[in-house]
């Protein structure tokens, strides 16, 4: 808490750090975050910076997602997953366990996979977010996506975006992965339909096509 300076003019008694929000400790008196004209939103419209304190009311922040800088009005307790799904309507990112143990919400922050359900949207800062919607470029599928289609690597499809994110990251960073590498890359991805064998096959096949 020491590293957070209190903003003058804010409501000191109500102010709650983003971390305590993520612990679920906060009770909000904030109003709607859904309405486009949000009376409670403070016009901030900057990338949040570490060390500042916000909340509990919504403020407008900037975030770069799939190459486009977006403005969104969010309460500090908002996770990145919720910001993507509920505010930017990028619903390919799924929330399954909501506590970092299933990887369905995997997105990249500056190219590195993270669980977006475990990250405050305020912690994104100037880092660029890539979601499943940003993997195909100019309508062209990534070889992993193409291989997922060819090898029937999705069933119900709910874990698929997270699986694709894990496998794309592997294939983009390892030109010659083996089965063990694919298993390691997807070891955090929960799938209940049992797509794993076809996910493994598809990813190995895709890696051959990306060399």
């Amino acid at each position: 808490m020491e590293d957070k300076k209190q903003e003058s003019g804010s409501q000191p008694k109500k102010a709650i750090t983003r971390r305590s929000f993520l612990r679920g400790a906060g009770l909000s008196t904030a109003g709607s975050v859904l309405l486009t004209t949000n009376a409670f939103a403070i016009d901030y419209n900057e990338y949040p910076v570490a060390g500042e304190e916000f909340g509990p009311d919504a403020i407008t922040i900037k975030m770069k997602v799939n190459g486009i800088t977006k403005s969104l009005s969010v309460e500090p307790r908002t996770t990145l997953a919720s910001a993507l799904r509920d505010h930017l309507e990028l619903t390919g990112t799924k929330v399954v366990c909501d506590r970092g143990s299933c990887s369905a919400c995997t997105v990249y922050l500056d190219g590195e996979p993270v669980n977006s359900c475990m990250l405050s949207v305020f912690d994104v800062g100037e880092k660029e977010v890539t979601t499943i919607e940003g993997i195909a470029k100019d309508g062209e599928l990534h070889p992993v996506q193409q291989a997922f289609i060819e090898h029937d690597a999705s069933q119900c499809g709910y874990c698929t975006p997270g699986m694709v994110m894990s496998c794309v990251h592997l294939v983009d960073n390892n030109t010659n992965p083996n089965l063990e590498d694919v298993k390691k890359a997807t070891r955090g991805n929960l799938c209940r339909c049992g797509t794993h064998p076809h996910v493994f096959k598809a990813t190995l096949d895709a890696s051959k096509k990306t060399i």
Partner: peptide
Amino acid sequence: ALDKVTGKAKFTSD
């Protein structure tokens, strides 16, 4: 499958 691998498939929760 295309909708599923690109995140475009809209589920009830979406």
